[in-house]
Design a protein around this nucleic acid. Sequence first.
DNA 1: TGCGTATATGAACATGTGTTCATATAACAT
DNA 2: ATGTTATATGAACACATGTTCATATACGCA
Lengths: 125, 125
Amino acid sequence: MSVKATQSVGDACEIQFVDEEKVENVRRAMKSVEAIGLLAETFRILGDPTRIKIAFALSKEELCVCDIANLLGVSQSAVSHSLRTLRQMKLVRFRREGKIAYYTLDDEHIANLFDEGFRHVEELL
Amino acid sequence: MSVKATQSVGDACEIQFVDEEKVENVRRAMKSVEAIGLLAETFRILGDPTRIKIAFALSKEELCVCDIANLLGVSQSAVSHSLRTLRQMKLVRFRREGKIAYYTLDDEHIANLFDEGFRHVEELL
DNA sequence: TGCGTATATGAACATGTGTTCATATAACAT
DNA sequence: ATGTTATATGAACACATGTTCATATACGCA
């Protein structure tokens, strides 16, 4: 989390490359720092039980804050904080109807991410 | 992270359900606690820049620890710790050849997760 | 206007996390 | 045997994170 490097960055290990060709292949296939950063951030946000439950629920139905809280057994405050985090990453979007805020998934890709993810974890169960 | 509940879990808000039918739909579509927990854990692990870079690299080529460290400009120790975390979640697997350990992605689903994820973040760039 | 309901948000706190540094293990070469 | 290379791991530290509690905003109704 902190970004200090005293030991060995640059030469990494004081070690030679074992297979420079493969390393070069990967280097070519590597995505931009920004894209990787955003993807990591996306996964990080979804890597919390409360937030993933909320996001998964919203992939099924549009829900208001309060129904989310009731459904998941989480406090209204916690839900609201979580929704903010999800919103900032553009994972959910909402519309307001009077005092009620209705949230949905912002992006179909996220639902696909869940499908693919559940296929992965089902092999671990 | 801590699991204390003093304010309002159970009745959540002191609020009524706004749309019980939608809530019931979601309840039926909900995955098991275990599956959701594992998926959250998977995303959490991939939600770190160093680990996602490593995992993405390994989705392209089989690499030894040292080449990963050189490629990414990260210390050998940090790579090794990261690989352990990825291993524990069965995201990567390795084979040993003498003193060299070669790592790869353990699961094709993870590569799909990257593809889908990058499709999502490309819309944010 | 005043009251209740729905949501948002800031501060504080306890807990979790990633890196580094130091060191261990283990294979290979000389 | 001894030294060198490749990897693994534990402890420690600085920092990030999620929840709660308290409160704010803002809409709707009497």
